[in-house]
Design a protein around this nucleic acid. Sequence first.
DNA 1: GAGAAACAGTACGGTACAGTAGCGTACTGT
DNA 2: ACAGTACGCTACTGTACCGTACTGTTTCTC
Lengths: 197, 197
Amino acid sequence: MTRSGDFVDVRVQRSKAAVLAQTYELLSAGGIGGVSIDEVSRRSGVSKTTIYRHWPSRAALLVEACSTIGSAPPVPDTGSFGGDLVALTEALAEQLRSARWAAVLPSIVDAAERDPDLAGLHADLHARLMAPFDVVTERARTRGELAADRGPADVTAAVAGPLFYRRWFSREPLDAAFVTRVVEDALGHLGVQDSST
Amino acid sequence: MTRSGDFVDVRVQRSKAAVLAQTYELLSAGGIGGVSIDEVSRRSGVSKTTIYRHWPSRAALLVEACSTIGSAPPVPDTGSFGGDLVALTEALAEQLRSARWAAVLPSIVDAAERDPDLAGLHADLHARLMAPFDVVTERARTRGELAADRGPADVTAAVAGPLFYRRWFSREPLDAAFVTRVVEDALGHLGVQDSST
DNA sequence: GAGAAACAGTACGGTACAGTAGCGTACTGT
DNA sequence: ACAGTACGCTACTGTACCGTACTGTTTCTC
């Protein structure tokens, strides 16, 4: 056993990083279906054998490559629920406009529709994306800023719903005016008086 | 030329029908990626050669098979915008819960994200699904029931957005209470006074 | 510096798929 | 009855993919 505790061979780190980077690249370009081990190997310069040394299967690699998507969005704290929600929604809209993963998500949703493994991935991803909304909403609730019968699930549906709809279904531009209207409407029927103009 | 005008050989009708039926079957089960000509041929009993006699390519077959999705939803006319919208939204929710194509749509959205041909299909489909909302909204507008700065696009985003979000992203059940809340909220901020209780 | 580990390269086997070609048969509309 | 057509069948080309086996080389760790 030359296994010495927690140290990881530099070569392993290098290989894994290169493979994950290229996997993510292919993922953004072609969705889940666009990722093949052969191609990852070709582009990353890491041989296929090595890839299979580090991941037991294509699916495992995909899951790990997706795990970085949509992580650690900042949770704003402007003092009011309204301000927080505006900030979060605009951040989400910006991501939907430009982030690489915005093009990948439909293929994950599709895969989750039938593959149970990928359904787990989808659930994680969804939780990660919506976590800030949950935080902000709970905070508002304890301050009594929110109608009693409305929870985080209602907030995310009211805000993320129209945004997602625009991005993937109607494919109209996510302009600032639309985003503003969505937030204001949401605040309105959530029983919140808008504190900004 | 025995070509006699509009008559179509019975055999052709039979073959095409069988192929389209099985294509749709595979489509619902496995999305776009789940349809292979070999499998369609195997299940339909129609030989691959024949399939290619009627469709120039796999893509053409897919487009035709999808063309029946979400067609001819009834346009209600309850007399008020509120009533119409409730009816339409409940119908949409029911479709999302049970219709076969609800499992297919994500793969179409995904495909549309990169393949221009399929993007056309996606656009058609979207237009077909949302047409009733447009009709109802325009009707309301001419009757002055709607705030001046709100158009059909806003109505569909406000209503279909949260529903789609629930169905595909948060994967929570589309229960009646949720649907009702969505419609009421939408009516509220569209400048409509709810005529029902 | 020695031994272990990770590595690239290559060549597999096996499967699945799109699409094409030729042949002989069965059916249809007139 | 008969020409035209659609058809099934089989076989084939070419590609892409997953995952594994083997060989020899580099490179890290101790």
